[in-house]
Design a protein around this nucleic acid. Structure first.
Lengths: 193, 193
DNA sequence: CACATATTTCAGAAATTTCTGAAAGTTGAG
DNA sequence: CTCAACTTTCAGAAATTTCTGAAATATGTG
């Protein structure tokens, strides 16, 4: 590797992290390098700095493009492809979550839905389906929440995150304010309304 | 494998998912099987049903115990170790998040903190540190939020999730209610009181 | 088209991870 | 202590994933 020490440490760490999250180590390194680079880099830059083969860089970039994590650019009078990460860190996280949902969560929901349609042949299958339903409903709930918050502007999202569980307190106030004599204030907050 | 079809499909799918998230396929299978089993299972049960070696099951269970995902039990007059998953699906997700934070997020924060202390030797390092700071601050913010919501009871958490971005509307109402003439209502919502 | 420059593909090599059987370790009962 | 029942360890085998160099492909230029 041919990088200033601080950048090298960062790149190595994110290579490791990547591989713990099912992302190829070198793909993690390429992305980390792009993330901290002030200018777009071409494949040969990455070969120089990361010390991996040209073909490996090529495959890594292809992978990153398929994840929408990287954008291809050109410079005038230069036939090389240059790459950058796109957006700020919040946009990056949004993209990561979106892609992982598409690739792993949605297919899991499909599988669960399909298995829940089957007729249980025995008691164990019946019980298994109950557990699968429990899981299905949780994932659906998380997806519903995600679908809602992903539309927020980053500014608003950060506001919400800063609030944390204090939202809870606001809800309690709301509950008290709108409490009806019949005790309807205890009904769970629904999405409608 | 020696499992009813619905359970087998579930176990296989979660083995796949596990391996996409950096969890060994067979560990995923063991956990999936335990999750849908109505009764605690012993290692030999798992060997029978999953068709893997006894030693593999032993290692998988050790791994799952280190993640606090599985509890060891005993039956009267039986020297075997029996295992179950613990808690409902929400508790499971909490445990997963907690452990992953401990193993991956916290160490990442340490690395970033350390790298941000270094004196940048050149312009590129300076820029890299700016990007690392951006990342560090985002992770801190997410952790702060997590630290808040993880304390909520599941019932409350679900309520919050169902609300989704509607919390936003409540905030807007609050902003209007407490708006001061000087325009202070536009300050970002802080964690302090 | 021929050439130079650049990228991609892919078969096999290398590295890593996972899995297994055999041996060693542990534990409770007699 | 000895035995039987059970679990863990671990070195090497097997499987999988990653990486590479060489060849193929693509593309802009004259």
């Amino acid at each position: 590797m041919n990088l200033p020490p601080v950048i090298q440490a960062f790149v190595l760490h994110f290579g490791e992290m990547g591989s713990r999250w099912g992302i190829n180590r070198t793909v993690g390194q390429i992305y980390a390098l792009l993330y901290v680079s002030p200018e777009p880099l071409c494949a040969d830059d990455m070969v120089d700095r990361l010390g991996m083969s040209r073909s490996n860089v090529s495959m890594g970039l292809k992978e990153l493009q398929s994840w929408n994590l990287v954008r291809l650019m050109h410079k005038p009078d230069d036939r090389k492809d240059y790459f950058t990460t796109l957006g700020d860190i919040w946009q990056i996280v949004r993209t990561l979550v979106e892609e992982r949902k598409k690739r792993e969560v949605d297919p899991t929901l499909s599988v669960l839905r399909e298995l829940l349609m089957q007729n249980p042949a025995m008691a164990d299958e019946q019980h298994a389906q109950d557990k699968m339903r429990e899981m299905y409903e949780m994932i659906e709930m998380l997806c519903g929440w995600y679908d809602d918050v992903r539309r927020l502007e980053t500014e608003r999202l950060m506001q919400l995150l800063s609030l944390g569980a204090k939202v809870q307190k606001i809800l309690e106030v709301k509950d008290r304010l709108f409490a009806l004599p019949g005790g309807r204030s205890k009904e769970p907050a629904g999405k409608e309304g």
